[in-house]
């Protein structure tokens, strides 16, 4: 847990990393800018998803569809109703959050496998609805001609660079908001739910409100990520929002990066989304690699890269001192 770090220190560190990555991003060519944008959008999804999976202990497979809902909301608002990007973005987040809250109210009647199956069903219904309501969504053919985010005059960068900056900015906002959430009373209640829901109830913790808040939180940011994705790609199709595509990818990012930390999922997103894109690996092999990595991490390091890094850091700090071995213990036993 990142509990030892105070909130202001976390914000300062996040801001420093944000400014540094923006400065680096501005030096990149268009292709790598695209990679940065996609990586940051998936990092937004992964960080907010971890609030639900890592901090509250619920595996939702509906988030691919919620991400899509944000994307389609933004597309319809900007392309069909003439809203600007900056108005459409928060509305898309609110719509997704509201639908997420309804999904949560339905799903939290169940737990464990039932919860996963129910959210999976909802994710599939969502994906089907994008296909069925083709007058609004464009169906299989996709939604064409979504206006890009409008750029202020004083910011003299290319549109692709602007998208990358927006995505990194959204990631900064998500990270800070998530850090605030997990440090709040609600966040503490979520941890209690993850550890032992019966005990949490017995202690008088408001279980229903806390997990509803966690689900809604992750839905709002999934919606914002979707809206930005729609606006920067100008085109969206249902195939981007499937359960086994995006929904599964999110699980992989969070588990490989590190459940229950906020920076782990970002590492996961960089490694699993940006890296294969940058190296231009074929989609089949990258999905196969996802599966293998996910399996390896679940078995050998269930807390992900974050736990490995923490352990490495710890042993590095302790290195000067000789590691205690088993001899004293053995002596104790034999004497």
């Amino acid at each position: 847990m990142t509990g030892s770090n105070s909130f202001p220190r976390t914000v300062i560190a996040a801001s420093a990393v944000f400014i540094a990555s923006c400065a680096v991003a501005l030096q990149l060519n268009d292709y790598y800018l695209y990679v940065v944008t996609i990586g940051a959008i998936f990092a937004v999804l992964a960080v907010s998803f971890d609030v639900l999976l890592g901090y509250t202990g619920y595996l939702s497979l509906a988030h691919g569809a919620l991400y899509g809902l944000g994307a389609y909301s933004c597309a319809v608002l900007t392309a069909n109703h003439g809203f600007g990007f900056w108005t459409a973005l928060p509305i898309a987040g609110l719509i997704t959050g509201a639908v997420g809250a309804i999904v949560a109210l339905l799903s939290f009647r169940t737990r464990g496998l039932y919860f996963a199956v129910l959210t999976l069903g909802i994710g599939l219904i969502g994906h089907q609805l994008f296909l069925v309501f083709d007058e609004v969504t464009g169906g299989v053919g996709g939604f064409v001609g979504i206006p890009g985010p409008e750029q202020p005059d004083w910011l003299r960068v290319s549109p692709t660079a602007y998208s990358a900056l927006l995505a990194l900015g959204l990631l900064w906002v998500t990270f800070v908001a998530a850090a605030a959430f997990v440090r709040s009373k609600l966040g503490a209640a979520c941890l209690a739910i993850r550890e032992d829901i019966t005990l949490a109830r017995a202690l008088g913790i408001r279980v229903a409100g806390a997990r509803l808040a966690a689900f809604t939180f992750s839905a709002v940011f999934a919606g914002l990520a979707g809206a930005l994705f729609a606006s920067m790609s100008n085109f969206i199709a249902p195939e981007s929002f499937t359960v086994l595509g995006t929904g599964f990818q999110l699980v992989a990012l969070v588990v490989v990066g590190g459940m229950g930390t906020l920076w782990g999922p970002i590492v996961g997103a960089i490694l699993l989304t940006a890296l294969p894109e940058a190296l231009r690996v074929a989609a089949t092999y990258s999905l196969l690699a996802y599966g293998v990595l996910l399996l390896v991490f679940v078995i050998f390091a269930p807390k992900g890269i974050a736990s490995l890094l923490k352990a490495a850091l710890k042993s590095f700090r302790k290195a000067p001192r000789p590691a205690p071995d088993a001899t004293p213990l053995r002596r104790e036993v034999t004497s």
């Binding site: 993850r194 019966t198 599964f248 599966g291 293998v292 996910l294 399996l295």
Partner: peptide, 24 residues
């Protein structure tokens, strides 16, 4: 309470691996 979460995740991983192997 979190029981089965890791089994569920590893099952998803197994499913994807077999599917992608078949695709290859």
């Amino acid at each position: 309470h979190g029981s089965g979460l890791s089994l569920m995740i590893s099952a998803l991983a197994g499913s994807i691996i077999l599917q992608q192997l078949a695709t290859i």
